[in-house]
Design a protein around this nucleic acid. Sequence first.
DNA 1: TCGCAGTTGGTGTT
DNA 2: AACACCAACTGCGA
Length: 537
Amino acid sequence: MSSGSGSLMWFRKGLRIHDNPALEHASKASNFLYPVFVIDPHYMKPDPTALSPGSSKAGLNRIRFLLQSLVDLDLSLKKLGSRLLVLKGDPSEVIVRCLKEWDVKKLCFEYDTEPYYQALDVKVKGFASAAGIEVFSPVSHTLFNPAEIIQKNGGRPPLSYQSFVKLAGEPSWISTPLSMTLSSLPPVGNVANCEVSEVPTVEELGYEEAQQGEFSPFRGGESEALKRLRQSIEKKEWVANFEKPKGDPSAFLKPATTVLSPYLKFGCLSSRYFYTCLQDVQKNVKRHTLPPVSLAGQLLWREFFYTVAFGTPNFDQMRGNKICKQIPWNDDDKLLAAWREARTGYPWIDAIMTQLRKWGWMHHLARHSVACFLTRGDLFVHWEKGRDVFERLLIDSDWAINNGNWLWLSCSSFFYQYNRIYSPISFGKKYDPNGDYIRQFLPVLKDMPKEYIYEPWTAPLSIQNKAKCIIGRDYPKPVVYHDSASKECKKKMAEAYALNRKLTSSVSEEDLINLRRKLEEDQKPEVKNKRQRKLTG
DNA sequence: TCGCAGTTGGTGTT
DNA sequence: AACACCAACTGCGA
């Protein structure tokens, strides 16, 4: 192993062979290659205190998706004469140890803009440069380099989609062909005293066998990603006419979108390859939709949120976040729990939350519905609480995009029309009047007639009996009455906005406490009365 | 200061 | 399906 140059390829995201500049660089002019993935126990270890199966950071669906992606990567590496070396422990400690133990001249890994990786990379880069090891860390997770865009805009990220698109222009790499395959890889070097293993199974990580039907139907891995991409791209007319807001959030047998987001999240699919494929389709059709609603437009949304998130301190919180409206969200853990556990009493909302738990994925507009309901629409619970639930359970949860969308939906940033509230009753009904989506995910309501399935508490007792679903016993009564709750929310939003206008970005803790107290005092009795009247009447 | 645009609301009418 | 209307926000550029 001292006979030449060794390289360490550190996989984090970018779990793919195609269009992987870090892997390509690592394999070039190296006698040995160490392809490494570090399992961070914090991310992967079962947490028995967690609210659903999984670790403290990730639900079991995403852990399984990641493991499937690693198995697929390992298989691909093996076909190229290599393999994936799986190590366990704190990632920076493990990588530093490998660099000490192995004869490595180059350390290669994809650049990452998330705060978690930024902090991690500082440590690892620090050690590497002190040890005289070359570090190669290219930007290949996104179409653009967020740092470059921010620089181009005078040091601040563009805060609207249109200004981002204008500023970004064409990706710089567009005229050079992407490297889609590797012919072979250098052999794996001697691993010495570092303990390496094969990719573990979920059971080996300490999880119990999941029940049938609890599995996400989406399988991880580059092979699956490319297969799925091809299936979408084949439908040229569908791609050309794609308009995001027109999709049906209740479609579950055949989702209305590509469901490529989890593959983009882990880098099983290169966003740059996806983008080039979309361009090819566009060249070959007469007419096609455009950003922001087109499929390419969806990739640009991803870029937009990556850029804003990278350039905004405390992007993932309300406090200390310059672009976030300061709003006196309430701290009602009971309402939060009802939402999280799919027992709000609104079947449309509860079905979506069930799909989240079972599949780790739901349609974008379904996410809008439940996010709006939790925050500015009905429950007025802090968006950070909802963000945490999504972050843990979604198989595609992505730090920048998830936080960006919660800021958006809660009218805390980017979007401010807080009177536009998704109805937990009529929004779903307009796509799925029969309630098939609800019947799928909430079998307790499967025999409820369609006239009542979106508002089962209004069904006469005889109907409830016949459907074998008594509201209040077999399925909960609504936690709030939407008409009055949404009115109160609008009022609170108006007051909070007024306060933000007056104090422009300097709303103090005390201001918020006072406002919250004030709002609670004059609204509580009214809400209670209305709710009782409706629910008992 | 003003007018306008903003990925995806709800309701009611034609 | 397409449109007006509701009630009305902010940020941006002229």
